[in-house]
Design a protein around this nucleic acid. Structure first.
Length: 257
DNA sequence: GCCCTTGTTACGCC
DNA sequence: AGGCGTAACAAGGG
């Protein structure tokens, strides 16, 4: 599913359209800003492709920003090139009926978002100020600042995009596994050293997963999550539970509450 | 045909 | 007031 890593993969693909001018816009009528998008984009040139957490932002003519959010199953296709062929929990097909946004450029090329489940969302001038700092830029001090005064489970809070932006279910479980911190641990109980372990695990493992292809390429693969073999680190029985309303896989031996 | 999956938001409660 | 927990949401796949 598209987490911040997939958003970065999509952002890199979207860089191909920098310098191109929008000729036509097709957008799903069920998008809240469908009318505004059809009106605001044609004639404008893409100046840059940024990423804020899970959001890809295209800046057009320095006057408008187009935010692309991919939900659970949204895929980006640029000039027929899909940087991610298959998403975990998504269909492998590319049915034209699932196109939710199609930008046609003046040279005839295309940027498409294809999403079977309609959870992709497109916004003009998205409010990125409400997002927390990016999950690829964490430090112990920054995490401490973002979590100060809170007491909920660390996984629940890291899933909150206003606290840290970019984490999804798979990346959180992977980082906490590597950091040796239990997902259900209250942040009020975490030491500064444990926050440092989380930040270090994010800085070390997330870029490696990005280059391997995304959030499903950690030690806790989707197959492992389904089959629950012994912990690859210490051989203890892996545990599956629910934290923050999400399926959570963790090792009760080396991940400390 | 029920149940599982995810990210986000809307509620009710404390 | 605001943190916290839970449910609802869409819809394809098993």
């Amino acid at each position: 599913m598209p987490e911040g890593l997939e958003a970065e993969i999509y952002r890199r693909a979207a860089e191909r359209v920098v310098g191109r001018a929008v000729a036509a816009v097709e957008v799903d009528d069920r998008q809240a800003m469908a009318g505004e998008l059809r009106h605001a984009l044609p004639g404008r040139t893409v100046m840059s492709a940024r990423r804020c957490g899970k959001l890809v932002v295209l800046d057009l003519d320095d006057t408008v920003a187009l935010g692309l959010h991919f939900g659970m199953t949204g895929r980006l296709i640029v000039d027929g090139f899909a940087p991610i062929d298959e998403l975990v929990y998504a269909s492998g097909r590319d049915d034209p009926a699932w196109n939710r946004l199609v930008l046609t450029f003046t040279d005839g090329t295309l940027l498409r978002v294809n999403d079977p489940r309609r959870w992709a969302a497109f916004t003009l001038d998205p409010d990125v100020e409400r997002l927390g700092p990016d999950f690829l830029d964490l430090s112990a001090d920054l995490l401490g600042e973002r979590l100060r005064g809170r007491r909920a489970a660390v996984k629940t809070l890291l899933l909150d995009q206003t606290i840290v932006a970019g984490f999804g279910n798979l990346c959180i479980d992977e980082v906490l596994f590597q950091a040796g911190v239990a997902p259900g641990a209250s942040v009020a109980e975490l030491t500064h050293g444990q926050l440092g372990e989380i930040a270090a695990a994010a800085r070390r493992h997330l870029p490696a997963m990005l280059e391997r292809g995304g959030s499903h390429t950690g030690v806790l693969t989707p197959v492992l999550r389904a089959l629950l073999p012994p912990c690859p680190r210490d051989g203890a029985p892996l545990q599956r539970s629910t934290v923050g309303g999400r399926t959570t896989v963790w090792c009760p031996v080396h991940q400390i509450v």
